[in-house]
Design a protein around this nucleic acid. Structure first.
Length: 126
DNA sequence: CCTCTATGCGTTC
DNA sequence: GAACGCATAGAGG
């Protein structure tokens, strides 16, 4: 990952480090947990905010899906397909979304209107 | 529907 | 070191 760094203070000195994967995952989880019920966000949208690639976002979500508290089912392919889901079927992922009020088209894709522009939502873009 | 490619990082030799 | 595998995206046919 290029671009994402971590600032910390050690021995009264400011330390600038490359973010560890653990740190990056924390940030991804923090963003994902802000997605409101009834909406979805694409992997690439999260990647844009962090200055990284969609593959890495997926990598983070896959890694620590143990945490049920993080609504990782609300992160989907940019074309509307629900994408993968570790630990359960993608059907389960879809059912979760439907339960939350997300609409699906006849071609099994998430309705465009349910996509949330996370950058706008968080006020990072106007 | 399909294929191809760019891409970052862990895992496993 | 190199090769491989991923919860991707986008372009092209």
């Amino acid at each position: 990952l290029q671009g994402l760094i971590v600032l910390s203070v050690k021995n009264n000195k400011l330390v600038v480090e490359r973010a560890s994967m653990r740190d990056i995952c924390e940030v991804v989880y923090a963003l994902v947990s802000l997605i409101p019920q009834g909406f979805v966000v694409s992997y690439s949208c999260i990647a844009r905010i962090l200055g990284t690639t969609p593959r890495l976002v997926a990598w983070c979500l896959r890694r620590n899906k143990l945490l049920i508290a993080i609504p990782c089912h609300r992160v989907v392919y940019s074309d509307g397909r629900v994408g993968g889901y570790t630990g359960a079927s993608t059907l389960f992922k879809r059912q979760l979304l439907e339960y939350e009020g997300v609409l699906f088209e006849a071609n099994d894709r998430v309705s465009r209107g349910c996509f949330l522009d996370l950058e706008k939502y968080l006020g990072l873009k106007h």
